[in-house]
Every structure is written in structure tokens, then in C-alpha cells.
Design a protein around this nucleic acid. Structure first.
Lengths: 244, 244
DNA sequence: CGGGGGTTTGAGTCCGTTCAAAATACGTGG
DNA sequence: CCACGTATTTTGAACGGACTCAAACCCCCG
């Protein structure tokens, strides 16, 4: 069925040895044999926007390195409420939490932009972990950061308004999606639909629309499609000034 | 100053070798030399209810094993909003997330009941981790669970009412704090004040009081002080039936 | 040109918050 | 053991932010 036309398998010519992201990722702990094992036990796949890298509830067969693109990790509850847990970008790894949790994927991973993702086989990963403590420690560090972020979200969601949280989010997204700026204006080209912004803040699309409208009224930011224009960064910063 | 009367240091007669909790904790990966190192590099301290095991922002000098009692992990933001991230019980370890994150303690740990806690020195821990991959993997598993729980909380906080979340919480607490029950009634003796219940759900004490009142009106549960009586478990389960 | 999903807008409602005051529980010292 | 001062909890009233439901709108794509 559809697997063949849903994704594009890449011949294994892309080597972990020369991967630009490796030195900045968990895998920097690997040398020689382990690196070779990593290289042999990975499969690289191309995804188009909207395609799923894995689905919630699926068994977890390994972890995924993002070589290019942006991936959204979503989580759906029993009533169908969906939130966007986090965004992951080139050089980052996803699915490792589920791998270590050992209960299958607790969320789904969807490509938001065209993406190239390497799947690392769980068996091989286990082997590397078993005799390379530094690799495990690297994952521990990442997991600790993720947990920190998750707790920060819990705190923000219960204490801050949607408007404040949206401004926070824009500030975060700025670091990754800001385009070159000729005048002082900052321009963001986001891979996110309104629904995604809503899911990221744990609110509804209608509320996002209203909040965006309010920000535009106050000339804090203007939205057109997935492009956000921030004429004056200071105004944005003033929004959250009491909350730093 | 007060340190001496705030806590009670225990002579090192309590051995990790004979610790009841060890086999059910991360430390089950340790053998011989490592176990001996653990035993030598720990300090055991008694805490009274309300005392802090560590404070938010403090440098992280190691991790803490709870030998007895219940510990609350709290987190405060810039405006002073405080939430209770999680409860930790005998046999569990706290502070390891902060240890691996490497930026000091992201929250505070407070004894809710009389507690005995072993502090494991970070230097020794690093040593054990460096040559015992299984220990790191055990921490990874725990961290993965914590992250799963945190994300579950995010989802629940944005989708479920306070009443539903409180019922959820009671059901969770039941597993640990249910007393023996002569008739069908379930009795919980919680170490939690109303404020703690509120902080645990990310809401206000007033809202908790009102919600409790509503539950009592509907004969789902009765609260008196820190004791909760659940006359009919099915009624409690019916509350969350649509949300399983 | 006609779907169709996503987005926006409107109106109304509800849940939870805020602020304030009263009531209760708690610990301490006399 | 009781009285007192303090902290916590409860109750009330009013407000407000976000949600729901519904309709209109828009834009993209076929």
C-alpha cells in the first residue's frame, strides 16, 4: 500500500561519519566501532509536510535523528484533545523518551516541513548504550532538559494568559525562524498553522485568532498566513516584562 | 545556626547493603564495589514535616533517596506562583533530574511527613555512572516516566475540569494512602494540605474548597482535615468514566 | 468554478479567578 | 489544659478569560 509513495527511502550514501549534526548531538560520544554500528543500523527517510514519522501508540523500534526539517510531537488524549508537546529541529533526536520508557510511542511525530530523518535501530542502540556510558549520559541530559521544559509549560499554562504565552512562543520561535531583516523589523516564517499555535499553547484556534487580532490592534505583531512581522522587538518584550 | 536543630544526622549505621528499597530502585544495578562506594558516599538525614531537603536554585550536589516519608517537589515562577510538580515516596529518588540537567535545582523538595532521606554524593554517582551503563539506563527509564507524567499533566490541565482532575488525583493517591477499610468505605490519610491539593492541580485553594464541597454534596467523597472518605469507589470512577 | 479545510468573527455561557471577610484549625506559651 | 495569635480554610459576590457553538469568510487546489 501507501508506504512506498508516502515516504522516500534514501540510499545509505549519507554517512554518520560525515554528518554535520553528529558532533552537536548525543552521538558525539561515539567513536570508531560504535559510530560504524550507528552508520550501518540507520535508515534515512524523506518526509513531506503532514506525513507521520511515527504514530501515537505504535511500538517503538528505535529512535529518530532529524537531519533536516521541523518535526512536531503531538499527543492526543481519550476525548480527542490534541496538544503539540514540542517542536524538534535539524540535529535533534526524537522518540528517545518513548524508547527508554519502553511502552511504545506516547505521541506522534509529524513533519511540518520537508524533512529528512534517520531511524536508528533499537537493538543497535541498546548495544551501544550497554558499553558506552557517555552515550547514556548524553540522553540523560537531554531528557532532563525536556522534563524541565515540560514542567515550565505546566507552570506557565496555569499562571499566564494565552496572550502572554503566545508572545513567549514567538520569542522562542524567533531564535530559529527569524528571516534576514533589512530594517529593524523581524520577520518569522513559521512552519505552523493556527491550529498548531493553538495546540502548542494548549488552547483553541478561535482563541488564537482573537489573540492575534489583539496583538495586531496593539501593533505588537502582524500575522499574514504563516508569516509574522514584529516591527519592534521591545514592544514584544514589554508584554512579558513582568514575567521574566 | 539552625542546621543542627532543623535536621537530624543519622550515624552511618544504616547500610545500603541491607536497604529494603534498593532492589526496587535504580540502585538494583549496583554490585560489590559500586554498592560499597554508594554506601560510603551517602549521608542520611531525618526531616520533619515542612523542612526542605533542598531549595529551588540551590546548586545540585548529588541526588536523594527517600528511605521513609513523602516528599513534595515544588516549583515557583518569577511572579511567585507555585505548583507542586510531583510527590515522591519511600524507595524513590529525587533530584536526579536536576543532577543530570546540571543547572542547579529547578525546584524545591519539602518533606510532607517525617522523612528519612539519603544524600548520595554527586562525585561518587558520576563515578558509578561512568563504568556502569545499566545504572544510567535505570535513570533514563525513570526520567522517561517522569516526562510522560509531565506531558500527561499538561494535557489534562488544558482539557479537564478541576473536579475531574481532583477525582483523578484521589484515585492516584488511593494507591498509596488508602487505610485498611472495614466496610466498603475507602479512607485516605493524606499528607497534603488544601493548598497542596491546589498546587498539585495548578489551581487555587478557593477552587479546591468549592470543588470539595461539590463532591460532598454529591456524596462522592467527604473530606475532614486531611482524611478523605470514599463511600463508593464506583461513584468516583463514574466521574472520570468518559475520560479513560 | 466549485468544493473543502482552515480561519475568523460573533454571541452567549461557564468555569475558575480575584478580592474580601468570616470561620475554623493549629501551635505556643502561660 | 486553656487562651490567644496566627495560618489555613471556607464562603460570598463579582468579574473575566477562555470555551462552545454557529455562521461567515477565505484561500488553496483540484
Amino acid at each position: 500500500m501507501a508506504k512506498a509513495d508516502r515516504v522516500t527511502r534514501i540510499p545509505p550514501n549519507l554517512s554518520c561519519f560525515t554528518c554535520q549534526s553528529r558532533e552537536r548531538s548525543e552521538w558525539c560520544a561515539l567513536r570508531n566501532d560504535d559510530l560504524d554500528l550507528l552508520n550501518r543500523s540507520k535508515i534515512t527517510v524523506n518526509y513531506r509536510p503532514g506525513q507521520n514519522v511515527y504514530g501515537q501508540g505504535n511500538p517503538c523500534s528505535g529512535i529518530y535523528c532529524i537531519e533536516e526539517g521541523t518535526i512536531a510531537i503531538r499527543r492526543v488524549d481519550a476525548q480527542g484533545n490534541s496538544i503539540l508537546i514540542r517542536l524538534a529541529h535539524a540535529g535533534q533526536t526524537v522518540g528517545y523518551r518513548d524508547f527508554f520508557g519502553g511502552e511504545g510511542h506516547t505521541g506522534s511525530a509529524e513533519a511540518l516541513s520537508p524533512a529528512r530523518v534517520c531511524h536508528v535501530d533499537g537493538q543497535a542502540l541498546r548495544q551501544m548504550l550497554s558499553h558506552n556510558p557517555a552515550l547514556g549520559l548524553n540522553f540523560l541530559t537531554h531528557l532532563a532538559e525536556d522534563l524541565d521544559n515540560a514542567e515550565e509549560s505546566i507552570l506557565q499554562n496555569s499562571a499566564l494568559s494565552v496572550r502572554t504565552r503566545l508572545v513567549h512562543l514567538l520569542l522562542t520561535l524567533k531564535d530559529r525562524f527569524a528571516d534576514a531583516t533589512d530594517d529593524g523589523t523581524i520577520v518569522l516564517s513559521l512552519p505552523l498553522a493556527r491550529q498548531d499555535l493553538a495546540a502548542l499553547l494548549g488552547t483553541r484556534p478561535e482563541t488564537i485568532a482573537r489573540t492575534i487580532h489583539a496583538l495586531e490592534t496593539d501593533s505588537v505583531a502582524t500575522f499574514s498566513g504563516r508569516t509574522v512581522r514584529i516591527p519592534d522587538l521591545d514592544m514584544l518584550l514589554n508584554e512579558i516584562e513582568p514575567y521574566i
